[in-house]
């Protein structure tokens, strides 16, 4: 009896917590399904009385959201692929190769984590401007093509692979690069997945750098482009929320699909130390 009561209480609390956490997202979805009148009406409410989708075409008309999505997608994909390549190469060297100054170079990687992006913003902006890289995909992607965090994540994983593999491969006449490409990389797929999901979401959600790097509407990413919806007098809440829902979907989907991967990545730093 007492156990049943505790369980009921647990479910009540769990549900209350879930509603509170998800409420702002539900609010956005609810408003996006209303017409303009209902969305700004009194009293404010979340569940639409008449569900309709007219806000979505209106949002796509007000701002070139499709174009923004393509930009964000291209940028996130390029950064993700580049990070997977540079980080796995570096992680391989740290995990499997013997070379002088290994510790020093490792510390150099480590030290990048102590420099906040905001402290390097001004020179990076000036560099991009002098290269003529403002409003280009290079400008949006190249500075993020390497990651110390990702390198450590992969190195940690590579270290769990048996060292005998390396020796066995060498005896079979397999060079280090072939060993990397045909044995280490396939075996490290889970860790590569973790880094991939993490890199994609982080880049998709970037705000400050794309804000500085893009002047023309055609190069904006979704995070910056969404602002275009707010400052048009004619648009209303339902249209803005439709825009928000459209840009939220890809990252929420990635979370649901890649949750296991992501959790592993995020907790590896905290729990294993």
């Amino acid at each position: 009896m007492k156990k049943r009561l505790t369980q009921t209480l647990q479910y009540v609390l769990l549900t209350a917590g879930a509603l509170a956490v998800v409420y702002p997202i539900l609010f956005a979805i609810g408003i996006s399904l209303m017409d303009a009148g209902e969305a700004s009406g009194y009293p404010p409410h979340v569940i639409p009385h008449h569900v309709q989708f007219s806000a979505f075409p209106a949002a796509l008309e007000t701002a070139p959201l499709a174009r923004f999505m393509i930009n964000s997608f291209v940028v996130s994909l390029i950064v993700t692929i580049a990070q997977l390549i540079t980080a796995s190469l570096a992680a391989y060297a740290f995990a499997f190769l013997e070379f002088p100054f290994k510790r020093t170079i490792f510390l150099i990687f480590l030290s990048t984590l102590m420099i906040p992006g905001e402290s390097t913003l001004i020179p990076n902006y000036l560099t991009m401007r002098s290269l003529g890289w403002i409003d280009t995909y290079q400008g949006l992607t190249v500075p993020f093509m390497a990651t110390a965090f990702g390198t450590f994540l992969l190195r940690q994983y590579f270290l769990t692979l048996p060292k005998q593999l390396f020796d066995a491969a060498r005896i079979d006449g397999c060079g280090p690069f072939r060993f990397f490409r045909s044995i280490v990389l396939p075996m490290a797929r889970p860790a590569l997945g973790t880094l991939g999901v993490y890199a994609f979401i982080t880049t998709w959600n970037q705000y400050l750098w794309p804000l500085l790097m893009t002047n023309s509407t055609s190069m904006r990413t979704v995070q910056i482009g969404i602002g275009m919806l707010q400052f048009q007098d004619a648009t209303t809440w339902n249209v803005v929320m439709a825009g928000v829902v459209v840009i939220l979907l890809p990252s929420l989907l990635t979370i649901v699909l890649g949750q296991k991967q992501l959790i592993k990545g995020l907790t590896s730093g905290a729990v294993k130390g």
Partner: peptide, 19 residues
Amino acid sequence: LYSATIGVSVASAATIWMF
């Protein structure tokens, strides 16, 4: 559900909370 906000960007969060 509890982990959902990890996928919410600052731009979309700010826009929702503005309302």
